[in-house]
């Protein structure tokens, strides 16, 4: 056990999308909110759901399912918006559910493989193993990169 303590680890916010568990570094997460009313913005990419009013700030929200090429899903009781802060500003991402905050030792993280072929692999930073489960580490910067149309 003592060696594990010394080992470098990553702290992640884990969430569910289409049956898989995904993780993003906790340091990027601004807050997690319930789905509030989203104002549609016309002439944007299909995965841009619109903007929300986050305590007086206009924050864009994207549907992470659509961004990752997964089929769309109706909003449920567990649907959440994970608000992250990146260089493009504050952005919300709609996920199926937020499961937990977890620590993952670096040794348990592997580069992306064909194992997870359900989404575009270039948006994946790596795959973490935890017991029998896999945690897909999302490359948040690539995911939220501005697409100039």
């Amino acid at each position: 056990m003592s060696t594990a303590v010394l080992e470098q680890e990553e702290q992640l916010v884990a969430f569910k999308l289409g049956g898989e568990t995904y993780g993003i570094p906790i340091s990027l997460v601004h807050e997690i909110i319930r789905c509030s009313e989203i104002t549609q913005v016309p002439r944007t990419a299909d995965y841009v759901r619109g903007v929300i009013n986050l305590r007086g700030k206009v924050v864009p929200v994207l549907d992470l399912r659509l961004r990752l090429g997964l089929p769309p899903m109706e909003e449920t009781r567990t649907t959440r918006i994970v608000v992250v802060e990146v260089e493009n500003g504050i952005i919300g991402m709609i996920v199926d559910a937020v499961s937990e905050v977890l620590r993952l030792p670096m040794s348990q993280i592997e580069p992306p493989s064909e194992l997870v072929a359900s989404i575009e692999t270039d948006l994946i930073r790596g795959v973490g193993k935890r017991d029998q489960d896999l945690v897909i580490l999302l490359d948040i910067y690539k995911t939220l990169k501005v697409h100039l149309e």
Partner: peptide, 12 residues
Amino acid sequence: SLGKFIGDIRGI
């Protein structure tokens, strides 16, 4: 502003 992520939209 709508922010950089959404960018320029014609008409908005």
